[in-house]
Simulated scan of single mutants.
Amino acid sequence: MDSYIDIRLLPDPEFAQNQLMNALFAKLHRALAQQRTYDIGVSFPRMQAKPHTLGDRLRLHGTAQALQALMTLDWLSGMRDHTSVADLQAVPARTQYRVVRRVQNKSNPERLRRRLAKRHGLTEEQARERIPDTMKSRLLDLPFVTLRSQSTGQNFRLFVEQGELLEQPHSGAFSAYGLSNAATVPWF
């Protein structure tokens, strides 16, 4: 990862910043999934824990070649009036690194019941007996984007966690969301 591109959301009186980030991130995800690109990572340089926000900046990380190939696609159509896209830049020489990963809430009782029923051939009632509604759902205390599932059509929250700062990079693949549980992105 020797290069990056910053995409800044512009203030808009009609759309909240989180709505624009949701739309931008959804477009990026579709482009990465369509191209089957797993060598581009993302970070959110202006992410805040309190209040929960990913901020107004999406940073794309990768090789110059991978980022140029992505930017030749028309994936930003419909967002050009809402964004300012910086030129491709080299990562600064002195930088730290961090993992930017997706965190999933694994304690939603309804989702756990559906999964249990599907995996073990149980009826909805049997699954409800094994996993009652009284099971507390653990709410994640992280910033997120709201996306629409292409397969189910349902909205879901994709929670993002930026890990601890590291002195050395770790290589690995990124998901079609530009996130990874092991690979780092430069942090500066």
Rank of each mutant, 00 (worst) to 15 (best):
I131R: 10
L88T: 06
Q154W: 07
P169A: 08
P132F: 09
D74S: 08
Q17L: 11
A173H: 15
Q126M: 14
K27F: 01
L147R: 12
G172L: 09
E164V: 11
N155A: 13
Q34A: 14
R128N: 14
P132L: 10
P45F: 00
Q89K: 09
K50W: 01
K50A: 05
A127F: 04
F44P: 12
V85F: 07
R102M: 07
H61R: 00
T152M: 14
R157K: 11
H82K: 15
F144S: 07
A64T: 10
Q150S: 13
L147F: 13
E125M: 10
T53S: 13
A66V: 02
L28S: 05
R8D: 06
A182K: 15
D56I: 04
A23C: 12
A93T: 09
Y97V: 00
E14G: 00
A69C: 08
G121S: 09
A26R: 00
F188S: 05
S151G: 07
P132H: 07
E125P: 03
L112E: 15
S107C: 09
G163P: 00
R114K: 15
S84G: 08
A16T: 12
D39L: 04
T95C: 02
N181W: 08
N181C: 09
P11F: 00
R8V: 14
W75Q: 09
L20F: 01
D12N: 15
L73V: 08
Y38I: 02
V160H: 03
R119D: 05
R148E: 10
E161Y: 02
G41W: 03
R30Y: 00
S107M: 10
R115V: 12
L88Y: 01
S149E: 06
N155M: 06
R115G: 09
Q17H: 11
Y38R: 06
R138Q: 13
E167I: 13
Q150I: 04
T37H: 03
R59L: 04
T123F: 09
L10V: 14
G62H: 00
G62D: 00
L142S: 03
A127D: 07
G178M: 02
A183D: 12
G178W: 01
Q104W: 04
L140K: 05
L67C: 04
Q168C: 08
Q168S: 14
H120Y: 13
S151N: 14
P13K: 07
K50Y: 05
L142F: 02
R111H: 15
Y97S: 00
A182G: 08
T37L: 01
Y97M: 00
N105D: 06
F156A: 11
E167L: 06
A23D: 09
Y4Q: 05
G178L: 11
I7Q: 14
L88C: 01
Q68M: 04
L10I: 15
F159P: 04
L76P: 03
L58C: 11
K106P: 02
Q154D: 13
L116N: 12
L10A: 10
K118R: 14
H61F: 03
S180V: 08
L139W: 11
P186K: 01
L122N: 06
G41T: 02
Q154E: 15
Q104I: 13
R94T: 13
R157M: 11
L70T: 06
N108C: 14
Y4W: 12
G163T: 08
N181R: 15
G121N: 10
L140S: 10
L122K: 05
L166N: 03
K106T: 12
Q126T: 06
Q154P: 05
D141R: 09
H120K: 12
